[in-house]
Amino acid sequence: MKFERYGIGIAKGMALTFRHLFRSPITIQYPDEKLVTSRRIRGNELVWFPEKCTGCATCAKSCPQGNIVISTHRGEGSKFEVDIFEIDSGRCIFCGLCVESCPYDALAMGLSYECAKYRRGDLILSKEKLAVSANHQPSAYYRPQFEDKLPKQSLLLYNQAEGGQKLKFLPLSKRKRGSGA
């Protein structure tokens, strides 16, 4: 292919690349700094509220992977007591259909997204692991009642003046590499 003036296009592109040297960064140093995720995040660990759950098993029926295990026995009156409630998060595809289908708001998606485990057995979430605790909170996916309690998502669309994420050069001395685990 013949060009009349070779190099003009490349020079134009280079000019653009050069301009980018002087703008603020658009990335963060992940394990040290973190962005705030969406309030509706479908995070890794589901949250289950035993006091609200009636053991109806609608969630188990609506799961496309069939990985919610529920076993109940009849307690006082017509109430069902839940003996086993287990979700295998290794098989879960985090589709959120179980949360959508629960008629009593007893199940919610979790907020966490870093859930590497050393053993496969740790992936199975039993009743204790599904309960709410300080670092295991429900997200607002299909549960708008939790929406106000959660921090606002940091959108890269906005710069800092508009209430967006603070993006700056992190000096090398501040970086703590390998301290994440």
């Binding site: 658009i26 969406s38 509706r40 985090f94 959120g96 259909l97 998502q153 959108l155 890269l156 669309l157």
Partner: peptide, 19 residues
């Protein structure tokens, strides 16, 4: 694209598999 992913995440909670 990251900005688009942010918007998807805001609405449906995930960045790739939206459902």
């Amino acid at each position: 694209r990251e900005k688009i992913m942010d918007m998807f995440e805001m609405v449906c909670g995930q960045r790739l598999l939206y459902n």
